[in-house]
Amino acid sequence: MAMTLRDIINKLLRRQPASASTARERLQLVLAHDRSDLSTELLDQMRREILEVVAKYVEIDVDEGAVSLETEDRMTALVANLPIKRTMTGQIKLKEHKDQSEENSQETEGKDQNY
C-alpha cells in the first residue's frame, strides 16, 4: 500500500490517517466482496478449511490467521495471511510427523557409522 509523507507524519504523531486512504482501503475490501459472489459465510467456511489444511503441516496461530479477498485492476485475489509460530531458535515449528522424525534419526545414525 502506497504511503505518502502525510500518512507517515500522521502515523508518527499517532493521529488518524487522512480519510482518503481509509476510503481506499474500505472500498477495495467491499469491492472484492461485491465482485465475487462469495457470501461471507462461504468465505468464512473456506477460511476455516484452509487453516485446517495448513495446520496439518505447520503450527499456525489460528486466531491470527486471516483469509481475505483483495482486488486490483478488476482482478480479485484470495490472500491468506497465516502467521507461523516459531520455535525458540527461530526455526519454523513443523508439526511432528512420527514417520518423518524416525527417518531423520535413521539417516543421522547412518552418517555416524560412516565416520
Binding site: D7, A18, S19, A20, A23, L27, E72
Partner: peptide, 18 residues
C-alpha cells in the same frame, strides 16, 4: 480536499475501477 488527502484521488478511482 484531494490535496489534503481527504478525498479519493483521481488515481485511486481510476485504479479501483480500471
Amino acid at each position: 480536499m484531494m490535496a489534503n488527502q481527504e478525498m479519493l484521488s483521481i488515481d485511486d478511482v481510476t485504479d479501483i475501477l480500471a
